[in-house]
Design a protein around this nucleic acid. Sequence first.
DNA 1: GGATACTTTAAAATCATTCTAAATAGATTG
DNA 2: CAATCTATTTAGAATGATTTTAAAGTATCC
Lengths: 136, 136
Amino acid sequence: MSDNQNTIEMLKKAGLRLTKQRIFIGDLLFGSKHKHVSAESLHKQIEKLGKKMALATVYNCLHHFHKAGLLKKVNAVNDIIIFDTNLCYHHHFLNVDTGELTDIDESNVSIAELPSLPEGFETESMELTIRVKPQT
Amino acid sequence: MSDNQNTIEMLKKAGLRLTKQRIFIGDLLFGSKHKHVSAESLHKQIEKLGKKMALATVYNCLHHFHKAGLLKKVNAVNDIIIFDTNLCYHHHFLNVDTGELTDIDESNVSIAELPSLPEGFETESMELTIRVKPQT
DNA sequence: GGATACTTTAAAATCATTCTAAATAGATTG
DNA sequence: CAATCTATTTAGAATGATTTTAAAGTATCC
Ligand SMILES: [Mn+2]
Ligand SMILES: [Mn+2]
Ligand SMILES: [Zn+2]
Ligand SMILES: [Zn+2]
């Protein structure tokens, strides 16, 4: 279903070599909607699709995609690194029970970032995490 | 120097048994200013003070203090759990180079938390992390 | 003081992630 | 289209934070 021509374009533009593994993962990630994946969750998805791929390859691929600016890293959640295909500046709901992330529409959050940064420092990124749980 | 009578009160009120280890750690943590510690950093501090204590005890103690509401857990930073003696609702600067956290005065941040929570969920906590780095 | 439950501890286990080193497969060039 | 060069994949070992185990020690209560 996924048109891997787009992925190939993307990889070329990013200066990454075209390996079957990267193309397969690229197709999975950069389809329609934005996604939040960990190496582990992505590896499981790949296995379910009947493909065999070393977990280390999934880690390598995600890191390469990140370095190339194709993925954003989300502040570690539950000791797990999450990669986000939504590259825009945005915030997250975190379901504390499942670890699932959901994007928050930026228009709903306004931060009066007056706080003076420590002298000689600059902001690299900023993220609000709203931890939610099933109502009691 | 630290008045461990306060710590003893605190532990009693929290329903925690009075062990030397807990009293020692309580004295370290609940002195004057607010602190951010990891199990590892606290353990190192304890060793520097010439005390011997199992790292597992430090972990146990921090978790007990947290369960008793004496400490807050900060969203994991660099794969490390940080405990915060500042129990008020507040946000952090994170020095991405050192992992050091600094409190942000709440008055400087305003969040229009209009985002509709997923149905049937409630907010457990909310934290803004501003990642900063030395100016280039 | 003695029974009881809770704690401390060293050591092993766990788990996400990274590293190693050898085999494989893209890219480049003649 | 080789030949070559280099990046990538991979299985498995290593790492590092944290948790668990099980035994020995200690606080609390009677
Ligand atoms: Mn880790
Ligand atoms: Mn970990
Ligand atoms: Zn997102
Ligand atoms: Zn703080």
